[in-house]
Design a protein around this nucleic acid. Sequence first.
DNA 1: TCTGAATTGGGTCAAATGACCCAAAATCAA
DNA 2: TTGATTTTGGGTCATTTGACCCAATTCAGA
Lengths: 189, 189
Amino acid sequence: MEKERFFKALSRERNPTHELKTHFNRMLKKEVYPAHSVILGTEEICNKMWFIVKGSAMAYVVKNGKKVPYWFWNENEIMVPIHSFFKQVPLGGYIQVMERSTMLSITYQGVRALIGRFPDFNFLLMDLMEDSHYSAEQRICSLTAIEPSERYELLLKDATFIARKAPVEAIAFYIGVSRKTLNRIRMKR
Amino acid sequence: MEKERFFKALSRERNPTHELKTHFNRMLKKEVYPAHSVILGTEEICNKMWFIVKGSAMAYVVKNGKKVPYWFWNENEIMVPIHSFFKQVPLGGYIQVMERSTMLSITYQGVRALIGRFPDFNFLLMDLMEDSHYSAEQRICSLTAIEPSERYELLLKDATFIARKAPVEAIAFYIGVSRKTLNRIRMKR
DNA sequence: TCTGAATTGGGTCAAATGACCCAAAATCAA
DNA sequence: TTGATTTTGGGTCATTTGACCCAATTCAGA
């Protein structure tokens, strides 16, 4: 069942109590977003954490009228803009689904309640943050320590869904080059 | 006193119990590193979290024999390679002090003990991770959404200590350009 | 303090890149 | 289904960039 998948994605190798799971599941709401809909705007404070049951999404900033993505989420992943959600501050970017997407969501208040009641829950959240932080650091290294073409190869290897689902220009900006340069990279292989 | 500064950097706006503070302080060790010494190597698992009482440090990966920095820490900051420390896995990079530095350290076992005993402590760690994650995300946006010269201006504004303390080449790689390009940027202003 | 090593600014030139452009293809909405 | 809009690959050309180089300066260790 879908709720199980969300909880599984959260808990992974850990073994949280059944009680936590029950309370967690009880708080989930199902949401469906039409293709390309914007879920969250720059000025908004994110008050939900999602699990992508089916679909995908990206977070981007707008520069010179262009969407420059800084994060992608795939099916089966937990989608939460960490800073906006946990600090309850404006997102400073946009989150948009890349296709018609089905999500499960839990509110900020819901998460807070679980934290208060189940100290174990903290560990799950900390794991989430660690992983996210690790990905971000990997991305920084990729953007500074390797060539654009290698970055593209890495993307094809580690995040195939991006190559399949995102517009070319978004992929290009994501790896720090222009659409033209990504085209040239693709021509050469 | 130095230990107070460490705890203050950890707790910030929060108000942890005095008991936590006492136990925390009791676990700290003072360490002094000579200028440019490497504190942690690629294969090592980080088993400490530091507070930089005086000095500064950088984390970098080596690419074609060059040091490409992905993180800098200044005086009064908490230095911890989040992934290696919390997941207890090899660093996958190097940490080096940029000058003779005085630190306070607490071991991984120490942190674990505090987590077990003071659930409050989790919140301090989560704040730490959030902030770190936010900085990483900002850096990703800077590397993809703005021009090298703007990146340099941002660095001068938000992280002056890097411009003052890091070698030119390190600064260049940090903002994703060659030493030559950074030189040209500097010439033009 | 002194000497060797490392870092620095800046010159040259070939290669990579981005801005602009276009026509074809794909996508979307009525 | 169809017409309008968006996305795409690819061409041109000016600009930016990086690799390589060197001499001057700074730095570090004895």
